[in-house]
Amino acid sequence: MDATAKLKDLAVSDTGFVFDPYSGSTFSANEAGMKILEGLKQGLSRAEIVFALEEHFEVRGDDLARDLDEFVLLLRRNQLVPADFSLS
């Protein structure tokens, strides 16, 4: 199964409540997390997601690319993306 297929089934409410129908697990994401999930579902690249974040938020000297990589690590740890998934 490719990465986005599983992500597409992930139910993300507008309050940041995330439900994984495959495992039954639920999560809370903040706004930046929701924005990244949205980008991943659309199959955006690393650079495109960073751009989307920059566009959506007022960024004050944060390292978005590093935060994004860390977030993807969290998704892998929670098996929301395949273990070998990494952003292009």
Partner: peptide, 15 residues
């Protein structure tokens, strides 16, 4: 419209 201030993305598993 003012944009929301960025906070690092988090995902917390419910336990």
């Amino acid at each position: 419209m003012t944009r929301p201030v960025y906070e690092r993305p988090i995902l917390i598993r419910h336990q």
